[in-house]
């Protein structure tokens, strides 16, 4: 196994996530795309952890922290989307133009 094959899967998933964040209209799907990007970052972390044979396993531990923070981010994100939906009757990011001059 080479190191590059794992890293390329990671960057491909990250690019897909980036594409999704820009193109998706629905706020829940924007969060889904962000999750895809975070999963791609985790692949990078674990791959480098194995490649460098780190005695402290910092890559794996950091990816565990990323997973925990991603869970927190989704919880808050969904709560915010819920509030927006309750106030505007829509979860469409295009219609959130209250702050537009």
């Amino acid at each position: 196994m080479t190191i590059v094959q794992f890293l390329i899967v990671g960057i491909a998933l990250f690019s897909f996530g980036l594409y999704g964040v820009i193109t998706r209209k629905n706020a829940v799907l924007v969060l889904v795309s962000v999750e895809l990007m975070l999963a791609a970052v985790n692949i990078n972390m674990v791959t480098f952890d194995v490649y460098l044979q780190d005695a402290l396993h910092q890559g794996q531990i950091f990816s565990l922290f990323i997973i925990a923070l991603a869970a927190a981010e989704v919880g808050i994100g969904i709560a915010i989307v819920l509030m927006i939906y309750r106030n505007r009757q829509s979860a469409d990011v295009d219609e959130l133009n209250l702050m537009k001059g």
Binding site: L13, F16, R24, V32
Partner: peptide, 9 residues
């Protein structure tokens, strides 16, 4: 994995 990632977005 990559196909599913593409279909996700």
């Amino acid at each position: 994995t990559l196909y599913a990632g593409w279909r996700t977005v």
